[in-house]
């Protein structure tokens, strides 16, 4: 896919419940060459900060999409999540070892910081207690083309903490 091809993106915004707020949020999208596909205004729902979540589906080239996100932030609109959701890559891995003793939250945090991926889901199984070998299944969401980098970060952190990583088989992987 070339840089000039438009793709679908989902942007999740937080709006203050005041008149004109929605229009203010949509203008930067149109002004920067984005094509609005749908707007889901969840009026009955509030974010933890008491604001209204709005989900906007739009089409734009990757370059213009970056401009849109920047323009939204400049306009003071809080962008919770922005990305080519439909093109993101999901992978599941199982890690095995002394997960708890080697600080699982540190493992996950370091992984998120430099892997270009986020941990969407975690299941821990420690049948012999947290002091023994346990296993965790992680569902990771990486942006497009970042899966390999995410895995390599995970391998690095795991090697340092003497954990085993059971990686998924990915298409064309080596």
């Amino acid at each position: 896919m070339s840089e000039t091809d438009a793709r679908s993106y989902t942007v999740r915004l937080e709006l203050v419940d005041e008149p004109g707020e929605l229009l203010r949020a949509l203008e930067p999208i149109a002004d920067n060459g984005g094509n609005l596909l749908s707007i889901f205004h969840e009026r009955g729902n509030l974010t933890p900060r008491g604001r209204i979540p709005v989900e906007v589906d739009l089409e734009a080239t990757p370059g213009k999409f970056d401009d849109i996100v920047e323009a939204l932030r400049e306009a003071g609109v809080n962008v919770i999540q922005a990305g080519a959701e439909r093109y993101s890559e999901e992978l599941t891995v199982v890690i095995v070892g002394h997960l708890v003793e080697t600080d699982l939250s540190d493992t996950l945090q370091r992984f998120q910081e430099c892997g270009g991926a986020s941990v969407a889901d975690l299941s821990l199984s420690a049948p012999a207690g947290t002091g023994d070998v346990s296993s965790a299944r992680l569902r990771l969401v990486a942006s497009e083309g970042r899966s390999e980098r995410a895995l390599s970060t995970l391998r690095g952190v795991a090697a340092e903490k003497d954990l085993r990583v059971i990686e998924p088989l990915t298409e064309g992987s080596a």
Binding site: V94, V96, S123, S125, A126, P127, V133, S134, S135, A136, R137, R164, I166
Partner: peptide
């Protein structure tokens, strides 16, 4: 390999 890894899978 612990059985827990296979169970989680």
């Amino acid at each position: 390999l612990p059985g827990s890894a296979l169970e989680l899978a």
